[in-house]
Nucleic acid binder design. Structure first.
Length: 196
DNA sequence: ACATTAAGTGATT
DNA sequence: AATCACTTAATGT
């Protein structure tokens, strides 16, 4: 960003820290601030009315969720829930500033557009996965994505939690993980999976 | 030692 | 691939 904008951002925002597994936003809530992810990792999940859910994408350092921008401007409640995958730091900008910045700063406009594009692309990818991949492939990809996003081969999740995020049943996840274990792609422990 | 929660498995649809 | 109906294993109190 140009220095002037950078300074405005620095002044307008405030820092917010979230701990691992803490919820950043619930579906139905109206955001009044736009979050920039400074460090850490956030998980964006879609819910239906009956408590089912599906994992959509991660937000990592340097990302923002441009969805929150339009969502806020229109005063619409969030369609997603966002929670911290790891301890994270966010820079929260009150919505009031954004309109002006979009108009005055070219770099900010671009930032918003490219962020939108990035979210859209990730959404497309998960649609492809859900539509075209079989459960075993989806599961393995889910594990690899998580490794990629967290930079760790260790995944601290129960089969139950994974099943929820992929919108399938625990039994299915257990069986498929067992297969992956036999293929020596992973090792399993209680509440923990390691990618080999 | 006992209860609770996570994970494994055969059978059925 | 989902669901049921268990069993077995790991962990907390």
């Amino acid at each position: 960003f140009e220095p002037r904008l950078a300074q405005e951002i620095a002044q307008a925002g405030r820092k917010r820290r979230v701990k691992r597994d803490q919820i950043v936003m619930n579906p139905g809530e109206k955001a009044i601030e736009m979050p920039f992810v400074l460090s850490g990792l956030l998980r964006v999940v879609r819910h239906d009315s009956k408590g089912k859910e599906i994992f959509l994408y991660y937000l990592e350092g340097g990302d923002t969720c441009a969805m929150s921008l339009t969502c806020c401007m229109e005063g619409k409640p969030s369609e997603f829930s966002v929670s911290a995958e790891e301890d994270s730091a966010l820079w929260m900008i009150p919505m009031g500033y954004l309109d002006g910045w979009v108009q005055r700063y070219r770099s900010f406009r671009q930032f918003v557009f490219s962020s939108y594009q990035a979210r859209f692309d990730e959404l497309l990818e998960t649609i492809d996965d859900v539509a075209f991949l079989k459960m075993d492939e989806r599961l393995y990809k889910y594990l690899l994505d998580k490794k990629q996003a967290t930079g760790s081969y260790v995944i601290n999740r129960t089969h139950e939690q994974i099943a929820k995020e992929l919108n399938t049943s625990r039994v299915v996840v257990s069986r498929l993980l067992k297969q992956l274990e036999k293929q020596e792609k992973i090792e399993q422990y209680r509440n923990r999976i390691e990618i080999l």
